[in-house]
């Protein structure tokens, strides 16, 4: 454990405005304005082949695909990996919360579904990513009304310095009535970008 150790950002991706970019380079663009069509097309383009994807709610689909893009480049162990997930957003799981609320709002049409209710927690998307990539590691989901690089930076450093994780996948995955945005970045010992608040904000605003 060294307090002076500097960690690096190895890779990052953005999924927003019908486009996917990795390390600032365009990977996939789609004309479809609607989120469901876009995310399905992105899933197909990336040859994801994970049938559980179609059972997920929109926030999980967004977070899962963004994480998958970065993690599948990592040559991960098939048995287990120690990569912590520190995600954040503004709208929590409100997109799915509204669906569950609509199913219970009226006495005459009262029909809550467990398949919907389970997704009324923002951290479920972290569970989905952990299952796919065998991450028996830390998950934390924070809510802010803006992208908070300082918070993510401090928390990632804390986990790495204390050897609670070998790598940390951090970022912002937000989905609400007015749109969607995922920005994830992987922090570890190696990488071209320095892990500091200035760099995190720089790559967040790229593309």
């Amino acid at each position: 454990m060294s307090l002076n150790q500097n960690y690096r950002i190895k890779s990052f991706c953005h999924l927003k405005n019908q486009s996917l970019t990795v390390n600032g380079q365009s990977v996939f663009d789609d004309a479809s304005e609607d989120f469901q069509t876009f995310i399905k097309n992105a899933y197909k383009f990336l040859k994801t082949d994970y049938p559980k994807f179609f059972k997920m709610d929109s926030l999980s689909k967004l977070a899962f695909l963004a994480a998958d893009v970065l993690l599948k480049r990592e040559n991960l162990n098939e048995e287990e990996n120690n990569i912590a997930l520190i995600f954040s957003n503004r709208a929590s799981s409100l997109d799915t919360d509204r669906k569950h609320q609509a199913a219970i709002e009226n006495e005459e049409e009262y029909f809550p579904s467990p398949a919907v209710f389970v997704y009324t927690l923002p951290n479920i998307c972290l569970g989905e990513i952990s299952i796919k990539h065998r991450l028996y590691s830390e998950n934390s989901f924070f809510i802010f009304d803006h992208f908070n690089a300082e918070h993510l930076h401090l928390y990632a450093n804390s986990l790495l310095r204390n050897e609670k994780a070998e790598k940390v996948l951090c970022g912002w995955v937000d989905l609400d009535e007015n749109g969607y945005e995922a920005f994830l970045y992987l922090v570890e010992n190696e990488g071209e970008i320095e892990h500091n608040i200035k760099q995190i904000n720089r790559i967040y605003t790229l593309s």
């Binding site: 389970v118 952990s130 299952i131 991450l135 028996y136 590691s137 830390e138 934390s140």
Partner: peptide, 11 residues
């Protein structure tokens, strides 16, 4: 203190 995922099932 520690927190770990099961990497098994969401519900």
């Amino acid at each position: 203190d520690a927190t770990c995922n099961d990497a098994n099932h969401i519900s």
